[in-house]
Design a protein around this nucleic acid. Structure first.
Lengths: 146, 146
DNA sequence: TATTGTTATACTCTATAACTATA
DNA sequence: TATAGTTATAGAGTATAACAATA
């Protein structure tokens, strides 16, 4: 057995810190933040049954989503209305300003991604996607062998 | 030109969230946290000229390190003394309890890492390390082409 | 004056518990 | 009672600006 290499978890945490901060900076320069971007992205893509559903997509709990939606609504980027059929369910919709902001943040995100991908060919990116997916799967809650 | 694939930055952010939370949980179960672990690891490895130096290793600013060192010192895990030659410089040292805690957290970190690495062979881990390193390099401040 | 670290303060993201509105 | 979402509250991690101690 060879000696254990640098822990992959630590390396991933450090990379995520470096890379994540750069992403935050890129979004901030465009007037946004990561959770804001994820929410606008989720709303644009659509396909959510409820806010809880959207929260899960963004990767936060309900009250955290509410917190961010408050900000987005106050900024005039989204509206919240109850569904007529089931008034418990709130329908979150992008306003025109919200769509505009989405596009601005998308520009920033795409430029950032281009920078991040520099020097990596498509095969390498696919390999990376695959490896990251396997790491995430290994630590997901239902992992029985960990 | 093929259509752009899922942004790698987004995937990395999401993976980091999932994997990072699992790491946090693992450390929390052993009575620690990520910044605490990084600091104890840095102190154990040694080779720092100053606290600023340690802060850089951990990836935080000076006051953030001070904040965590306050907690570690209050918990009896580290001591802070001034260097006789240059009393501006504070010498941070692990106590016996600090070393014990380091070992406990290391157990947790190693177990976590084993779980994270499940099903990945050494070549794949090396590939992943290389790819992550290249991503980090691409967004580091002095990148001129981004 | 320059350097090392701390204090004071505040912000962002996140969460849990308790609550309201609706069914 | 059960479900969707909000309010109230709190905590962790981080940062900037101003400060103190030392050189």
């Amino acid at each position: 057995m060879r000696p254990t290499q640098a822990p992959i978890g630590l390396l991933l945490a450090q990379t995520a810190k470096t890379v994540g901060r750069a992403f935050d900076d890129a979004l901030a320069a465009a007037g946004g933040s990561l959770p804001e971007w994820l929410i606008l992205l989720g709303l644009t893509r659509g396909g959510h049954d409820s806010q809880s559903d959207l929260a899960a997509t963004v990767g936060v709990q309900g009250p955290t989503l509410t917190h961010h939606l408050n900000g987005l609504e106050k900024a005039g980027l989204v509206t919240r209305t109850r569904l007529p059929d089931n008034r418990r369910v709130h329908q979150v919709a992008l306003t025109e300003a919200g769509r505009a902001k989405f596009h601005r943040l998308r520009q920033a995100a795409m430029a950032y991604d281009a920078r991040l991908r520099q020097g990596l060919v498509e095969d390498e990116l696919d390999m990376l996607r695959s490896l990251l997916g396997r790491l995430a799967a290994n630590v997901e809650k239902d992992g029985r062998e960990g």
